[in-house]
Design a protein around this nucleic acid. Structure first.
Lengths: 127, 127
DNA sequence: TCCAAACTATTAAAATTTTAGTAGAAATAT
DNA sequence: ATATTTCTACTAAAATTTTAATAGTTTGGA
């Protein structure tokens, strides 16, 4: 067992939207995040509040920059994805990745090149 | 373009919990759903309210049974999964199924037998 | 037929999430 | 050095989601 494992909280939809942008940008000041949002853009303080909440939840940290803060993720997209994807997998596919892949192949959402990529991945993983 | 395609609404967390049970049971009266929930169980009217909301959203229907209603899904788990999974896929894996499979394989969440199943699925899909 | 039980519909309170205003602090320009 | 701008922290209003009480209806049993 991994003794350093931490329970990662769930994000609300609004919080996740901000995190997605921060994951994409790597780090950002409030205005950078607003710039990435689509109309109608939220007010400056709205985004600042989300960042504060995310900081309290341990999802982001900041370093001072001039009179402002530059924010960065403390929880990686991969870490968070791990949790949400395993929830999805168990909720919708009985916990079976094979069932999920099958689902996508049935819904014609899988191209031949994508299949080839997956084959390649599994060839590598299998050794 | 598919002219019969309908935009399927998003579910809140509570609504989804009820839908998951209904998908599992196939059909159910209010008490059947409560029985599937863990402590502290919600009150009867709470669950009835969720069913009403889900009915308004077009997710469930009902047939009269005695003085009560027997509810059933109108949107299948597969239909709903299609939407949420494609959102997940694009949010977390750049829309690439291969990337998602790769993610799981890297996180050691994929057994050899699961890989074999996936290979089999793709063999079939490829023809 | 009438009563009690069990149900749905309606309403609204409570909790959470989202949005943003305001106060005060800090940097910058004049 | 002071005024202006820009920022964070704090607070709270607005919106949504969750929870459940109450009113009223239906049905099955006495």
């Amino acid at each position: 067992m991994n003794t350093t494992a931490k329970k990662i909280a769930e994000l609300t939809r609004g919080e996740e939207e901000v995190m997605q942008i921060l994951w994409r940008l790597g780090d950002a000041v409030v205005n950078d995040i607003i710039a990435q949002m689509s109309e109608p853009r939220p007010k400056y303080t709205t985004v600042a509040t989300f960042l504060k909440i995310l900081e309290n939840k341990g999802f982001v940290g900041h370093t001072p920059e001039g009179k402002s803060h530059r924010y960065h993720p403390e929880v990686s997209k991969e870490q968070y994805a791990r949790g949400v994807m395993s929830t999805m997998l168990s909720s919708y596919f009985g916990g079976s990745l094979a069932q999920m892949v099958s689902f996508f192949s049935q819904h014609e959402q899988m191209s031949v090149s994508e299949m080839d990529e997956i084959l390649e991945i599994m060839r590598n993983a299998k050794q």
